[in-house]
């Protein structure tokens, strides 16, 4: 039963990340996703200190706001300060993350968080933290519900805003020509990414979330040229990553989140070599074919 709980929670988190990641990598914003996932840390710690617990929606909102603030700061330093964008990303998220780690160390006694949790989450403890109703009925692990709700929100966001997200990603000029605000959708997407990274934080930590944001979408991107198919393949890969990662971790007796990233990387490597469309082998074959034809 524990295995099912962990794999399901992992899948829910991975699917939410992967769906948003598809938009991120096509918008060339993968590193902004990385930055947000690091930068929400001080928000999480502060929300902990203020609310005193983990399971409040204020925490999600507060930390989500910090994520949006991060995007804003990155653009502010880039546009107003004239700092090149890669350095702007690098400076912004490292100092926010450093601040978060320091807050954790300083308030070690008061905050139920430690550096390990920051680095690779506590998905292994998911089955221990149960949601118990007032009449004593056990509904199952709390994280399962939180990640489920977040996934539903993300799916709603993507289906309702599909046209806008799609257009602002692939043809921003056309989008603004027909009256869709690119910056509004940019910030909405960033809010969604913040929300997801905050909710995934407990399960997989602040850094490995990036693997779930980037690796499955990148793999799917190599397997298809159709965006809708890419989303579906990402969903499948996310579930696969979660399940295989869990068993790898059990086998090696290591961190589940670490093993999930490892598996995500392995799937990418497989697609990179064997993909029928864009794989190394397929490309080499095509090359050989072209040269033999000439």
């Amino acid at each position: 039963m524990d295995a099912i709980y962990i794999i399901t929670t992992g899948s829910l988190v991975a699917i939410a990340c992967g769906l948003l990641g598809c938009f991120l990598i096509l918008r060339k914003m993968a590193m902004v996703g990385d930055a947000i996932s690091h930068a929400v840390l001080p928000g999480i710690v502060l929300a902990f200190l203020i609310s005193g617990s983990r399971d409040s929606f204020t925490m999600l909102l507060g930390a989500g706001a910090i994520g949006v603030l991060t995007t804003f700061l990155i653009e502010f330093f880039h546009k107003k300060g004239g700092l090149q964008s890669d350095a702007s990303i690098g400076v912004t998220f490292t100092w926010l993350f450093a601040l978060g780690v320091i807050l954790i160390s300083v308030y070690a006694g008061e905050v139920d968080l430690d550096q390990d949790c920051v680095l690779y989450g506590e998905i292994a403890y998911v089955p221990l933290d149960l949601w118990i109703g007032s009449n004593g009925i056990i509904y199952g692990p709390r994280s399962l519900y939180i990640s489920g709700v977040v996934l539903v929100v993300i799916i709603l966001f993507i289906t309702l805003g599909y046209k806008e997200l799609h257009l602002t990603t692939f043809d921003p000029a056309f989008a603004s020509a027909i009256g869709i605000s690119t910056s509004l959708w940019h910030y909405l997407l960033m809010s969604a990414v913040s929300l997801t990274t905050v909710s995934s934080f407990e399960s997989v930590g602040a850094i490995l979330v990036v693997a779930l944001l980037i690796a499955p979408p990148a793999t799917a991107y190599l397997l298809t040229a159709n965006f809708k198919k890419m989303l579906w393949i990402t969903v499948a890969l996310s579930i696969l990553t979660s399940a295989t990662g869990y068993y790898l971790a059990v086998y090696l007796d290591g961190s589940i989140a670490g093993a999930m990233s490892t598996m995500a990387g392995l799937f990418f490597a497989l697609a990179f070599i064997f993909s029928p469309v864009d794989g190394l082998i397929a490309k080499r074959r095509r090359q050989l074919y072209e040269t033999s034809k000439n």
């Binding site: 993968a30 590193m31 680095l119 990148a218 989140a257 093993a259 990233s261 990387g265």
Partner: peptide
């Protein structure tokens, strides 16, 4: 940017696993 993020997180994940 995608390949940077990918390599970064996957390598770090392997590191954490080890």
């Amino acid at each position: 940017d995608t390949s940077i993020g990918l390599i970064l997180s996957v390598f770090f994940g392997i590191g954490i696993l080890l």
